[in-house]
Write a protein that binds this DNA or RNA. Structure first.
Lengths: 192, 192, 192, 192
DNA sequence: GATGAATGAGTGTTCATTCAT
DNA sequence: GATGAATGAACACTCATTCAT
């Protein structure tokens, strides 16, 4: 079972989603197709399992970062969230193209929704309780940041991060988030 | 030939990438498969053509926005770029999931690179010549903005924009970009 | 197309329904599986085609017999119907076990219904117009005869007819039908 | 063992022959597949057991009816035999389509032969010893009646009996048998 | 004796691509 | 150039049967 899951990751990483098929996974896992189907009802389930684990890891990392910065300055929060997200994402960098393809299959939408909702909620909460926070609409800010995170980073992954300058990416993203948050705070004092 | 291209778009929009196949495209185009293969060497070529057109449209829209704001304030530039990108993207909203899947196929990387490079270059140029611009590394800023654009927006597309508040999305994104750019300028005067 | 149909009959006859599969049919027909699927949308369609043709042949044979004996004595009619049914049935004797299995699949019920309904209707009509006919419920008599025909004969087929004494079977069946019909007429004159 | 047999019946009734498989039977019986295979060497054996029991029940019912009418009038015999057969058959009405499919598998021929032979023999004996019987070939008459019984009734089962007029079916069949037998007797006195 | 995880051959079906007409 | 019938490799999934525990 664990072997099958591991094989799924490997096949996904090395062969991509197109060449991904149950036979290959079974062979790589050193089991028969039949065995594979005893643990996963169908091919999609296999893919979803991988995607789900990834998304859960991301959401948990962000939640943890938010928890640990519940009363810190929003600048700290922004940095922590970006760092947490990137750490998880880069740990499975070679998986991410495949994961992104999976997540674009219609039925995976729910799964993704879940993760982003969790993340946005955690961020919104931390923004509300931040020492220096005072937002007119923390939920909107949190949703924007989440979209930027879950959306921007993969784009970075393929082009910039793969070229080994992930540190720089993290710095820029953090700065973008911090300045965006700072601007949002200003809005509150002097509404448009 | 044009009919085939049009049919490709239609099939992609209505049936999605999974149900996309040459037979269906040919039928929809009102030609035979054989004819289709006279104009496009294989299925991938068909998909690439669509993706390429989309990416070129994006790149051109951004280049035009940059051109028109070459000497304007960076705030104006940010807004114009975001607006330009979103206009194109939302014009073919129902196509974008399929396009994203295509772009995640390994061999499409080049195509995407090209568009983002063009966009980043245009933005970098405009940042350099901006009336109030004074960046230590305009290229890095431009690349970050490009990644955020090409990456964030699709994430928005599925979750937020579909809920008809695309206007808000545009406002938030513009604000994020503007504040980020402003923060970058500050950096120059008072280096870290 | 005709070759595929022919191959279907052959595979059904020689290998039976259990060993019947699309690959085998295609190979026997000298075509590829793909070609097979161009003419028949799926395996079931293949089987149904064979069953339908058989049932239509039976129904038509009975209808023709009824037509030709529309005003004859009921004794003649009974003999003609039995003879017509048996002629068709024995012409494809080696197919009939397989056909019977097909007809027992749930979705084939309609097909069978159609054939028996047609046959029953034809027989009922002829009974009504028969020179010496005078039945209280020709429809009931016709349905009973049809059931006996479509049901009894296969049982005969496997045990008796296969032992080459089909002639005797036909004689007995004809007698059974004639005496039953005669008894039904008696009923009318002297109701129970 | 008894549980397995019972489960076989249940699965056959509720899921039909197509969905019938050893795993399902074992689960329904509350045992493991391994255990199932300790009592029945293979899937076919399981099905044969069910079919055999059914056929034995039919044969025994007919034998009993014949025994009880050994010296009665042939009219009585006919009625008793039809009634006995139908009672058993309708008691497991929902099983009969599946049973019929099983019986059409080549290797089940023996089993069926056995039951019909027993039935035909019993009927032939009773015809010979009947008070008013005087047949030139009682065996032929008996075989014809048996074929009509085992063959016709199922046809009735699916179309007529299911519509709750089983009583009528029984009346018609009985009449058909009685008139056939009567006709056979006449033959002896006045040979063709 | 009982278990049930493991096996893997077998099957229906799809679809990119070719090529004779 | 156009056609579309033909191809056949590829794949998801099932299930009868075995055998180590």
């Amino acid at each position: 079972m664990e072997a099958i899951f591991e094989a799924t990751l490997q096949v996904l990483s090395s062969d991509g989603l197109i060449r991904f098929n149950t036979t290959r996974v079974a062979r790589r896992a050193g089991v028969s197709v039949g065995t594979l189907y005893q643990y996963f009802p169908n091919k999609q389930a296999l893919l979803f399992a991988v995607l789900e684990r990834h998304l859960v890891m991301l959401a948990e990392a962000i939640e943890k970062a938010c928890d640990e910065n519940r009363h810190a300055a929003v600048e700290m929060l922004a940095e922590a969230v970006v760092k947490a997200y990137l750490r998880v994402q880069m740990a499975q960098a070679e998986l991410s193209p495949a994961l992104y393809r999976i997540s674009l299959e219609l039925d995976a939408r729910e799964l993704t929704e879940l993760a982003t909702r969790r993340s946005a909620k955690a961020i919104a909460t931390s923004l509300s309780t931040a020492g220096d926070g005072d937002f007119s609409d923390p939920r909107l800010v949190a949703e924007t940041l989440t979209a930027a995170l879950y959306g921007t980073v993969p784009a970075f992954c393929h082009r910039v991060l793969s070229e080994a300058n992930g540190v720089e990416a993290q710095k820029q993203l953090t700065m973008m988030f911090q300045s965006y948050i700072r601007a949002q705070k200003a809005h509150v004092s002097q509404p448009e």
